Simulated scan of single mutants.
Amino acid sequence: MPTRPTLLYDGDCGFCTRSVRVALRLPVAVTPLPWQAADLAALGVDAARARGQVLFIEPSGRVHGGAMAVAALLRRSRGLWPVAGAVLALPVVRTVAAAVYRTVSANRHRLPGATPACRLPREQWPAPRE
């Protein structure tokens, strides 16, 4: 396992790639990696999950997905960001954050930076390298 967290995202999606670039401006040590180039088995991640949501993989192997991946990233940052991550993980906020994440994910092809790959139905998504 890596010694720093891995941020696994859809490298074919322009919106996702831009979002990761914004996240990398945070004061946090994380390794960004498109799932298309990842050794998913070594990361302990299921291919369907890697295709379906952003993943934050801790060095211990614990995996956070979707909105909770964002919360985990914020909690590992410096400054006041960990407070935002903790708030995002609160039960009521977590439920709302998950709904917002699902809505954004389902409509990412309509958002700035979208690419044709964002528009593909799930059954046509490329298979990850195993």
Rank of each mutant, 00 (worst) to 15 (best):
W35F: 14
P128G: 09
A114N: 09
C16D: 02
A69C: 04
F56Y: 15
A99M: 11
P27G: 10
G113T: 05
R25V: 14
A47N: 06
G14N: 10
V54C: 03
A127M: 09
P34M: 07
A48R: 13
A86E: 15
R4G: 12
R108T: 11
G14E: 06
V70H: 00
P27I: 11
W35I: 11
L120S: 01
Y101P: 05
V22Y: 15
D39A: 13
V83W: 15
A23L: 13
L73S: 03
P32R: 15
R18I: 00
L43H: 03
W35K: 12
D39S: 13
V45D: 08
P91A: 15
L90E: 12
L88E: 05
C13I: 04
H64D: 10
Q124G: 01
G65R: 08
V104P: 02
E130R: 14
L55A: 04
T3R: 07
S60Q: 08
R110S: 03
D39Y: 05
A48C: 10
A29D: 13
A67K: 01
P32N: 15
F56I: 05
Y101G: 12
L73F: 13
H64G: 06
S19N: 14
T103D: 10
D39H: 06
G61L: 13
V96S: 01
P112V: 13
A106M: 02
W81K: 05
L88V: 06
P121K: 00
T103E: 08
E123C: 12
V30L: 06
I57N: 02
G79M: 05
